[in-house]
Amino acid sequence: METSTKLGAYLLRLGDNTLVLGQRLAEWCGHGPVLEQDIALTNISLDLFGQTRSLLQYAGELEGKGRSEDDLAFLRDVREFRNCLLVEQPNGDFAGTIARQFLFDSFHYLLLEFLCDSTDKHLASIAKKSLKEVTYHLRFSSEWMIRLGDGTEVSHHKIQAALEDLWDYTGELYTPDELDSEMAFLGVAPDLNKLREPYLRKVEAILDTATLRKPASAFLQMGGKTGRHSEHLGHLLAEMQFLQRAYPGLTW
């Protein structure tokens, strides 16, 4: 495989993460616990879609088959998606959504920090713009972790339960495979092995403040990055892709 093809494949991972998480958050539209949080979650969703557009556009260019970001988002099947398992997990209750967001934001932030200095200039410029948005996402989700964890008995219980449910999916974020290592070697992306410690430190610091326990799970789920997904992603895509599948090429 050529380097540009590999970079394209790597960009799909980044773009699919933000696309799938953005779609999950969009499901909250009109269903938020209060108006203010409804808007906050959909704001974050729109930020993520903006990032997706830049990343998939670039991935399409590198692929060179004339596929646009829309083609990549709406016309690929579930096995071709390269997002991590964490972001496709269902929203659950508000605590579930916040825990998923926090676990992803903490990683996303560290990743983007590195990508700002990527040897690939185009990717670096996308990362610089995204980092500002994600700084806010992380602030938002961290604060809610603390509020819920250090809140009432009920909220503490719910957020701890959500954390236990989602923890197994965090390992994939910082465990490199061949493609990750190659991108790291080229200076395009960070060495994920070196991201692991800072990630866990960042997460644990907030969990401490939130009076939450770090789940003691030894088993970590893998697969999303190579196209092996949980059953949830297919359902998400069915909803997201319905219009373009039923009416190909339809525009507003």
């Binding site: 808007i39 906050a40 509020r147």
Partner: peptide, 20 residues
């Protein structure tokens, strides 16, 4: 105006509701 549990949340909600 908007609802928020405390001042910090009020600032964040205001950012999301009124400065988009």
């Amino acid at each position: 105006s908007l609802h928020a549990a405390d001042a910090e949340m009020a600032i964040e909600n205001a950012r999301d509701v009124y400065t988009r």
